[in-house]
Design a protein around this nucleic acid. Structure first.
Lengths: 169, 169
DNA sequence: CCAACCATGTAAGCTGTTACATGATTGA
DNA sequence: TCAATCATGTAACAGCTTACATGGTTGG
């Protein structure tokens, strides 16, 4: 289960689609960072089908292979993934995009988790910059780490800002 | 030539080291994002040696295989890479860390390039958010894109801030 | 003497990239 | 009819991850 696989499951859950339609999503949205070209998407779809997480059903217009639908098992796997604790922030953002809109609690919990993960990582970088290891690094290397810090702070800020949007009931 | 290969060339140029010492750098600094474990580093070093970009010379203490040194060709390749136009921002940050400290012009040029690349990508995301494609995306997907925007703005801000540091003569 | 660390590797397996191949259908 | 787009794939290759394997040295 790669991030690409989860992205495919999430997209199919939102709306059953053909392989081609899924490819189009990757080509026309920032989700494109997770893939490119048929060489990764089609094999991934086949493997999801083989493992019983997706099925194809003939589409109304009868064109091509049909539309992919989530199986019960695929749905469960997706739920599990969506509810998992946050590790990598990039993967977490992908999950956020697929979180159910109606489940306010899950969204708020995610945002809290995300913010604290970002802050913890920030603290890690700050600790590193203050450590011995960082002392004998060239100046630019430290400034590069500063860039990482700013990215993490931007992530934390985003979570805070987004939480406010959702908290207003 | 993967990012990892360039990271290795850059580290060796800063200071000749053994394979083990290089691994340690990845383990103890944020550079760790480019690798992990011997399974990627040692094969990469061998391939750099085989292609004549690195050589091993016996180290003073005579332990292990010796220290890796940059060859003339390796040095040229590294220079070329450092001077290349900016594409991926992550790769660019890696390059920044290895830019020569004495070459102020190169640093300022890099920062200008970096900032405009980040701004161009921001503009791309903003255009996407304003496009038709974005209209029928779920709210959370758009908010996830907003996160990407904030990251890019943080990158542009970093470049601007850093440039000021270097501009003061 | 035993644990920890120095130091270097190999092998299986999975993913992704690139590039090519194929054929149907639609619109100008 | 011809180009574009729909629609689906395959094959070669490179790279990374995980896990295992091997020995030497140092400190408590």
């Amino acid at each position: 289960m790669t991030p690409l696989s989860y992205a495919l499951l999430g997209l199919v859950q939102m709306q059953p689609r053909s392989g081609y339609a899924l490819r189009k999503v990757f080509e026309t949205t920032p989700l494109g960072g997770y893939s490119s070209s048929p060489g990764s998407i089609y094999p991934a779809l086949r493997s999801l089908e083989k493992t019983g997480l997706l099925v194809t059903r003939a589409s109304s217009d009868g064109r091509g292979k049909g539309h992919y639908h989530l199986t019960a098992e695929g749905g469960r796997l997706l739920e599990t993934w969506l509810a998992a604790p946050i590790g990598d922030l990039g993967e977490a953002m992908l999950r956020f995009a697929f979180l159910r809109d109606d489940d306010r609690n899950a969204i708020l919990a995610f945002l809290d988790d995300f913010q604290s993960a970002a802050e913890k990582q920030s603290a890690g970088l700050e600790a590193f910059l203050a450590s011995e290891d960082a002392k004998d690094m060239p100046a630019k290397a430290r400034i590069a780490v500063e860039h990482g810090l700013r990215q993490l702070r931007a992530s934390a800020d985003w979570a805070c800002w987004t939480r406010e949007q959702y908290a207003t009931d």
